[in-house]
Simulated assay, not measured.
Amino acid sequence: MKKIGVLGGGQLGRMMIQSAMNLNIHVKTLDPDPNAPCKAVAHEFVVGSLNDYDTILEFAKDVDIVTIEIENVNTDALLEIQKQGTPVFPKPEHIALIQDKRVQKQFYQENNIPTSPFVLVENKEELVKHKDLLPAVMKIGKGGYDGRGVQVMRTETDFEKGFDGPSVFEKMVDIDKEISIIAARNEKGEINTFPAVEVVYHESNLVDYLLSPATISKEIEDKATEIAIDLVKKLDFIGLLAIEFFVDQEGNVIVNEVAPRTHNSGHQTIEGNITSQFDQHIRAVANLPLGDTARRSPSAMVNVLGEKGYTGVAKYEGVDEVLSISGVYIHLYDKQMTKPERKMGHITIIAETKEQLLEKVDLVKKHFKVIA
């Protein structure tokens, strides 16, 4: 029986463990939070820093494979683990590349992966030299996540809202749709992609809900899939890679960002696809045959976020109403405390038609609330 060490004990790790258990794979998890979502389900749960070199080396001593559920980890430690002979997937150099949006954008440019025009800046004072890019978006190089570390700049007066650190300043795309494709590759070199999903965001840059299939043409989906496969090959990537795309008003498909792990934009695959993203991640890092990613039916995912104005012990409203709807599945993350816009769970939805799907999405959003 293989033993996988997972860096990160959040909800992504929790769902990954549920997939690993079905294959009798033993999972050991490391997280700084003693009450992280993985605690209740991991075979072994270790409390410790994801950025401490020695902690990670000690953690990995008795595992067969190391993987991640969050990219904010010490890659120097992972390089040493890899050097000592324990496989690390995704590879430490890929995690390091993706940790820095500046390096990520340069990789796209150097490898002919379509992305928006950009410049690298060291601080917000440099923005005035690149005002010709306006309207634009400033993204902090390291540390941004879930919409944090991103600032929209429409005029020069917005420059004062910028970041005082190394960042990317990129031209704003005239977006028609935002879509995501998740690709997997194992050590044998097998590659498989999930069908594209359409991503709808809150005004706070957090995902509100997803729709599968995306409302795009076959040509656009084929182009995005081709780019995803090209990117995985050029990286020589092993594991699961989530690729977020912009589709502009002219139908151009542009890579926005990637994540080297299971991703919010793949949650609907649990009920909506033959193989879930979590099953696929385990298959990829363990060098098992990749699963069939075809849709079972149209599906959606609604993010369950803490309601604004509530902080404290979480209470869930609308559970009975939502569970009474056919084809609706609640997935909560065992987080005891809620705060505004904290990810507390997600709800997946399946239906026979896209119209029925959207009706159910509206009902779920109307009834299900996290308060305190």
Rank of each mutant, 00 (worst) to 15 (best):
H263E: 09
E170Q: 08
N112E: 07
Y333E: 00
G165A: 12
K2H: 09
A40Q: 11
F237M: 05
V319Y: 09
Y108W: 10
I325T: 02
L79K: 08
V197R: 04
M337Y: 13
A136Q: 04
L12P: 15
E321T: 07
K101R: 15
F194N: 11
N287I: 02
P298A: 06
M172I: 08
E321G: 11
L210T: 07
E178Y: 12
R261C: 09
P135K: 11
L358R: 15
A196E: 06
E307A: 07
T348D: 12
T338C: 07
V173R: 00
D62E: 05
K39V: 10
L127A: 02
M21I: 05
I68S: 06
M301N: 03
F194A: 12
A196D: 14
I56F: 00
I98C: 09
I181M: 02
Q99K: 01
I81W: 00
T215S: 15
Y145N: 13
S217P: 10
L57G: 00
Y333T: 09
L358I: 12
I191V: 12
K218F: 11
I81T: 03
I113C: 08
G165C: 14
M344C: 02
I81H: 00
N205C: 06
Q277H: 05
A36H: 09
E271A: 02
I68N: 06
T215L: 09
L323Y: 09
A372W: 01
V137A: 04
Q268H: 12
K177H: 13
N22T: 12
V255E: 06
E341Y: 15
V128D: 08
E156H: 02
G318L: 12
D146N: 15
S49K: 01
D292N: 15
T262M: 14
P213V: 10
E71V: 06
I282G: 13
K171G: 04
E80F: 00
D31W: 00
I270C: 08
L30F: 08
K339R: 15
I216A: 14
G189W: 03
T338Q: 08
L290V: 04
S324D: 07
I179G: 11
L357A: 14
A351H: 03
I70K: 05
P260N: 13
M172G: 10
V200E: 14
E126Q: 14
Q18V: 03
Q82L: 01
A294C: 10
I68P: 13
I282F: 00
A300S: 14
I182S: 01
L358W: 06
R283Q: 07
I113P: 01
I330C: 09
I140F: 02
G239Y: 05
L7I: 03
T311N: 10
F245K: 10
R261D: 11
K83W: 00
N22V: 13
L211D: 11
L12A: 05
I175H: 07
T293L: 11
T269R: 08
I181E: 03
T262I: 14
Y209C: 11
G306T: 10
A242I: 06
H367Q: 15
M301S: 13
D292M: 05
L305N: 11
K139F: 07
L241I: 11
E122I: 01
H94G: 05
E125H: 13
V361H: 07
E250W: 06
Y201F: 15
G266V: 00
V152P: 10
G327I: 01
I95C: 00
Q356M: 15
M138R: 10
E321F: 04
V66R: 11
E355Y: 06
